Amino acid sequence: MRSIAFCLGAGLLALGSPAALAADYTAAEPGFWQRSRDNVEATWRSDRYELYVPAVTWHNRAFYDRAKIDSFNERPWGLGFGRYRYDADGDWHALYAMAFLDSHKDVEPFVGYAYQKTWRPLDGWRLGAGFTAGVTARSDYSYIPLPAVLPLVSVEYRRLALQATYIPGGHNNGNVLFAWLRWQLD
């Protein structure tokens, strides 16, 4: 028993004192959830706003029957509004709400957070790739709130962006490219 206690004690001494261990722990980088919370909070506090105008809903013809395609709406009239910011690395963050006409011409709301890693290939131009995570509700699911995490890409020139996501799916559902214009108001 003494040898076990000695080994444990020696191991703790090799690692450092409990106070030193605590100091090392608090000096460590924040974890994923803390960074996520900090990003959402900083974006919420931003005083920069943008407008979203849905542009197109394209149903991937490789996954749909012709009759389904013919019955779908691919003009998603709607509007959205959000707060955005660029972080110290120049990456884009936003909190937003958007409502538009879905494939069945029913209103579909979406509320979420978005992040894009941003590259600047030319003066005034930005390319972005990232994700959006949020909640939507659809008439064909009785407007039950549905969580969604989707890819996000954009091509931007100064204050105007064409932004898009792809909703995966199976045969005759999902597999939709949804694109909108994003205008930074300030």
Rank of each mutant, 00 (worst) to 15 (best):
G174M: 08
T132L: 10
L146K: 03
G112C: 04
W125A: 11
G169Q: 07
F63S: 08
G169I: 13
T57C: 08
Q163N: 09
W77H: 09
W183M: 11
W58I: 07
L95E: 01
P168N: 12
L152I: 03
G78Q: 02
L152G: 01
G90I: 00
T136K: 00
E41Q: 08
P54H: 01
L177C: 04
D89G: 02
I69H: 01
D38L: 08
N173I: 12
K117I: 13
G11M: 12
G169V: 14
K68I: 05
E29T: 12
F81L: 13
T118E: 04
M98I: 08
D87G: 07
N175H: 10
G9A: 06
T57P: 01
L8T: 04
A161D: 00
K117R: 12
A133P: 06
L13W: 04
A133C: 06
A114S: 10
T57D: 10
R138D: 02
F178S: 00
V53S: 04
R45W: 08
Y141G: 08
D65S: 13
W119A: 13
V40Y: 01
N173H: 12
K117A: 12
Y113M: 08
R126V: 03
N175D: 07
H104L: 15
G128D: 05
R61Q: 11
D24N: 13
L13R: 06
R66G: 00
F63P: 04
L12D: 05
L15K: 10
F178Q: 00
A10L: 15
Y166H: 09
S3C: 06
D91S: 06
P151T: 15
S154Q: 04
A164T: 07
T165M: 05
G174A: 11
T165H: 04
A88I: 13
R138L: 07
W180F: 06
Y25T: 07
V111Y: 01
C7Y: 10
F81Y: 14
G16S: 13
E41H: 06
F81D: 15
A27D: 13
K105F: 13
M1A: 13
F72W: 02
G124M: 09
N39V: 00
R35F: 07
R37M: 10
R85H: 11
A148L: 15
F6V: 09
L185T: 09
R85D: 06
G128I: 02
T57F: 00
V135K: 12
R158G: 01
D24C: 12
L150F: 07
F6W: 14
T57N: 04
F100H: 05
D91R: 11
L13E: 14
Y86M: 03
T132R: 07
L181M: 09
L177V: 11
F6D: 12
R35I: 07
N175G: 11
Q116Y: 01
A94M: 04
P168D: 12
L185Y: 06
D186W: 14
A67R: 12
T26R: 09
K117N: 03
F32K: 10
T165L: 03
T57R: 00
L150H: 05
Y166A: 04
S103F: 03
N60D: 14
Y166G: 02
A23M: 14
Y52M: 10
R66F: 10
L150R: 06
P147M: 03
Y64K: 01
